[in-house]
């Protein structure tokens, strides 16, 4: 059983009472373990909303989101927080890190929240910083890191809890080309070598070129889904 994310008939509507706006409209999405998929589309197409629904940060108005066969739309707010901690890694567009903590402490934070022992945390942190090629920057505060380095630390943090998959919302949006490629290299390497599932929203061509599956959203509907790894998909009416 390799299905990680299974979104069924998911819709999210704003302004229900007045003029309904479908941020997500009847979306079906299926992500397998080890995928490296990009959600693309113009601004306002619903990429972030869909990520939020899959990540359990928001609840759909209709439909269900299954993560490893568990319908997370049925979970209470408190259980969802716990679920996210154990199962999902997040990388946001910017301001990912706590400014008063060092890079190492930022990564360690997730494991502290999970109640993992210090000795285990130390080993994992070392390993993660090796993977993001920043072992020499562990004790540096975010303000002293470049945007790209900060995003790499954010990736390390997202992986710290050994999640089922990582959701990244426009991870390269604020990065220069070199930093963006560097981050993508690391994400691709982690995907290939560690089989970590990545689903990210982007309209950055550099990212799209690296993705092995491209899901295009327009006005809250999936209009195309070109997959290198075969997936079940529903094409929306265009």
């Amino acid at each position: 059983m390799n299905t990680v994310i299974d979104a069924h008939n998911v819709s999210k509507v704003y302004n229900r009472e007045t003029v309904p706006v479908y941020a997500i409209n009847n979306v079906h999405l299926h992500i397998e373990k080890g995928e490296f998929a990009a959600l693309v589309g113009p601004s306002g197409s619903g990429k972030t909303t869909l990520l939020n629904l899959i990540g359990g940060l928001d609840k759909p108005d209709t439909g269900s989101v299954f993560i490893n066969e568990l319908d997370i739309t049925k979970l209470s707010a408190n259980k969802l927080i716990d679920f996210r901690l154990k199962n999902i890694g997040f990388v946001f567009q910017s301001f990912n890190l706590i400014p008063v903590l060092t890079a190492k402490e930022n990564v360690e934070l997730i494991m502290q929240l999970q109640g993992i022992e210090k000795s285990v945390r130390d080993v994992r942190v070392q390993q993660l910083f090796r993977q993001i090629e920043m072992s020499d920057k562990m004790d540096v505060r975010p303000a002293q890191l470049s945007g790209g380095q900060q995003q790499r630390v954010a990736v390390a943090r997202a992986l710290a809890s050994r999640p089922k998959f990582v959701l990244a919302d426009e991870p390269t949006a604020n990065l220069d080309s070199k930093s963006a490629f560097n981050l993508l290299d690391i994400m691709t390497k982690l995907n290939k070598e560690e089989h970590i599932t990545f689903l990210f929203s982007t309209h950055d061509q550099r990212v799209i070129e690296r993705a092995r599956r491209i899901i295009t959203l327009v006005d809250g509907r999936i209009v195309s889904d070109t997959a290198a790894v075969s997936t079940r998909h529903e094409k929306a009416d265009v």
Binding site: G55, L57, N78, I81, D82, R84, L85, K86, F90, F92, F95, N96, I98, I110, L113, Q114, R157, A158, S161
Partner: peptide, 16 residues
């Protein structure tokens, strides 16, 4: 505000 939203998103319980 953003930071708190982010902390809850990544799994920090509100009680913590």
């Amino acid at each position: 505000k953003f930071e708190m939203g982010m902390l809850v998103s990544i799994g920090m319980k509100k009680s913590k």
